[in-house]
């Protein structure tokens, strides 16, 4: 069965492109526009990986990742999360790991790297 990836990203361009590319890699893609939607979706269905933009309205990626790690369900709260950010320079690696991200990718996105990274988490 195909693994399910949730892409949280407020830019529909990146959202759609990532979706297309990852679908070509035989992943199922769900989309969210902000952190709140992510939490809601997580509680609704099992998700194998989250790609999360840091700058999102309503609930940003950092807060969202922290929230997810705080969730009571041990399976949901351990979902791998990869940060995507156009501001990688403003954060140190530890900022990401402290917030609970497993990894991060800078923008502009290098999709080769994205696919490669996704595969290391969910084959």
């Amino acid at each position: 069965m195909s693994k399910k990836i949730l892409i949280a990203e407020d830019s529909s361009v990146i959202q759609n492109l990532s979706k297309k590319i990852l679908e070509n890699q035989n992943y199922l893609i769900l989309s969210a526009k902000n952190g709140k939607e992510v939490i809601a979706l997580l509680n609704k269905e099992p998700i194998d990986l989250i790609l999360m933009d840091i700058n999102m309205p309503q609930m940003d990626g950092m807060t969202c990742a922290r929230e997810i790690r705080k969730l009571a369900d041990p399976v949901i709260s351990k979902v791998p999360i990869i940060a995507i950010t156009g501001n990688a320079r403003n954060y140190s690696e530890s900022d990401f790991s402290d917030a609970g991200f497993n990894d991060f990718l800078p923008k502009p996105l290098d999709f080769d790297k994205l696919v490669e990274l996704v595969k290391t988490y969910i084959a």
Binding site: V13, L17, I84, G86, K107, P108
Partner: peptide, 20 residues
């Protein structure tokens, strides 16, 4: 600034270099 930040990411990802 926020709008531009998002735009920067999208433009960069798509290689729309001049705009980016």
């Amino acid at each position: 600034q926020k709008i531009l930040h998002t735009l920067k990411g999208s433009a960069g990802t798509l290689g729309v270099s001049k705009v980016e």
